[in-house]
Nucleic acid binder design. Structure first.
Lengths: 152, 152
DNA sequence: GTACGTGCAAAAATTTTGCTTTAAT
DNA sequence: ATTAAAGCAAAATTTTTGCACGTAC
């Protein structure tokens, strides 16, 4: 079942590379192959280690650059992991975050209806749940206005 | 309205410091004061800059250590911000993440009922929403089992 | 052949650590 | 007076960048 995702992604890379005039290099193929095969949301360092098994000379900076390229192409995304990044909050009440892709500001919001929704069995089966947070990605009102102004 | 949170937090710090035998230093008070006053989920570097206005000699490593202490005391938490950390995923289909506090593994799960829930007006007012992800914090089944085994 | 992308090395940025001094208790 | 915590500097990470060479087109 993972195999199909991998082939699909590699096909997407071929198509997008042709469309956007990017070169189809071994490194990009192998890095995408590893990432698409992985189920554990690896870091650049981890991807590098795995790709080295097939391409012993691949460098870590190529992995960084390629992951960024794959992100630009819409083939991969950075994911949210609680506590893995250096942003802090003293407000520990249940609330959620809206993150602006443009300015990276984080705004809080509440979602009472969500609190009434039971956590799905699929998630409860994974372990004991202590906390829940929603991350909304988008563009904040300020950045939308700024962009609209610039486009006119 | 922020003022009350600040005073509340400082009071918590006094109480917890007494309880746990920690010393109530200017630095800890001022760092917590800044963090509790902030609404923008600042990084350690940002907190450092703000605290320096009141304590010009405070060092950046004290801010790092203190934020960690405040986290241990349960007065602050690291927050999730999409794309600010180096973990990647090639699976772009709508799904959510369960993160184990103990081993930091990230597991995926689906939540179809959530997809039917409308995003609250409070959040829609913040800007255009492009994506939604839930982060569950907890302890995974493996780590629970490991811990139970060790305790016996 | 052209020039985009890689590899290498070095730099920049971020976070942690060892040790000495300061200050809270 | 004790000793936890701060400050300083240096180290360890993590991520980015400049440049020469290799390779996909």
């Amino acid at each position: 079942m993972r195999h199909e995702l991998v082939e699909q992604k590699l096909e997407d890379l071929r198509r997008l590379s042709a469309e956007r005039g990017l070169r189809l290099t071994h490194q990009r193929m192998e890095i995408l192959r590893e990432l698409a095969s992985a189920t554990d949301h690896p870091s650049a360092e981890t991807v590098h280690g795995r790709v080295q098994r097939r391409l012993p000379t691949v460098s870590l900076d190529t992995v960084y650059r390629t992951l960024c390229t794959l992100e630009d192409l819409g083939l991969a995304a950075k994911v949210s992991v609680v506590g893995d990044n250096g942003r802090f909050d003293a407000d520990l009440s249940p609330h959620h975050h809206f993150v602006c892709d443009a300015c990276h500001e984080v705004r809080d919001f509440a979602w009472p209806d969500l609190d009434d929704l039971p956590i799905p069995g699929e998630a409860r089966a994974l372990g004991r749940v202590d906390g829940l947070r929603v991350i909304l990605k988008g563009t904040c009102a300020d950045c939308l206005a700024r962009r609209a102004g610039r486009d006119s």
